[in-house]
Design a protein around this nucleic acid. Sequence first.
DNA 1: TAGATTGTTAATCGATTAACAATC
DNA 2: TAGATTGTTAATCGATTAACAATC
Lengths: 210, 210
Amino acid sequence: MICPDDHLRPLVLERLMLYHRFLSERGGRKALATVTSGQMAEALDVDPTQVRKDLGSIGLRGRGRVGFNATEVVNTIRQVLGFDRTHLAVLVGVGHLGGALIAYRGFARYGLRIVAAFDSDASKTGQELAGCPIRNTRGMTAFVRRHQIHLAILSTPADVAQRVADRLVAAGVRAIWNFAPTRLAVPEGICVRDEHISLGLSQLAYRLSD
Amino acid sequence: MICPDDHLRPLVLERLMLYHRFLSERGGRKALATVTSGQMAEALDVDPTQVRKDLGSIGLRGRGRVGFNATEVVNTIRQVLGFDRTHLAVLVGVGHLGGALIAYRGFARYGLRIVAAFDSDASKTGQELAGCPIRNTRGMTAFVRRHQIHLAILSTPADVAQRVADRLVAAGVRAIWNFAPTRLAVPEGICVRDEHISLGLSQLAYRLSD
DNA sequence: TAGATTGTTAATCGATTAACAATC
DNA sequence: TAGATTGTTAATCGATTAACAATC
């Protein structure tokens, strides 16, 4: 068993992802065999103690005066976060943002595979986008059930997001990646991650208005 | 002067934005003249005390047994966050995501106006996207300087993001909305907001892998 | 008035950082 | 060995929540 702790906190998970990215995508730099918490900390603007704690929480041990085995760190994080598995997903709402998410090739390395997209606009359905078929929303529930999809990406307008989420959950979806600018009410046990892009503007506009 | 506190923390700013959205976009619901901290708290899954503290921190006072004046709350948040001003911005990197950001009409209500987009791909430059001209990156620095642009949206590939950011800062940009999956090094005083969409996957994949 | 709601102070909780002996 | 780096415990910091008198 890889994961000694029962439950890793969201902030820890995000930092693990940053460590993973830093170690696996070191463009230009030499791919070193070992890496110290200090090196990771400086590159990612995190406290070195934090790095050691995070790695320790998933069972990784470093060596004094040497540091951590870089490939071991990458592989363990991959396993703990579940990137070594394939996560089948559907996407609902093929607007500009939905299309961008479908076309983005970077998700594949995390095991995410969008197998179908759904939209209520008949002029879009029947086509393909980056190899992903766009279907009519009518068939969504049946598709999700038949293929046992557990993850849905929601990029619909805000006013229909809740209704779509309800149908997805009823069809067996257990996690929703929500790009619609609204809060979703879901049953206990369903995982929702909000990606409310506009929130970023609060900081930027505030800082620019000084 | 509207803002009594010198400095509002990022988490407070995000919640203020949620309150603002809730009160200004209440689709279906009656637009009530007053709203209580309890109503906002329940709708947004925040503690009622938190709501009162946040509103109090920007000078808003409620009335016992009544609550807060809804339009006063909306207007004050708009002013404090700077949504009543126009923020001119450039966008760099017109890929799928960049295009989606240009086309998204929801930013206008926060005062954001993308006046030009830049890309190094000659097949894209010269065109328009949703009324926004796409120009060659060569002219970026001059454009930013000439129009005194203070905000830049970065949606380039990760490997060129730092170079682009350096040029933008040199040209006078003071805030960067970074959608490139990489950390940017910027001088003191420059505000960077990272919108690393992939980070959301850490939570979703982890939860699906139980 | 009675009682729902506020504003504020105190307590709790969790996350971050500092200190330092143990390790290689 | 000497000293850089680790793992862990303690201290600090900030954010959230609870308690409650004041208000309308």
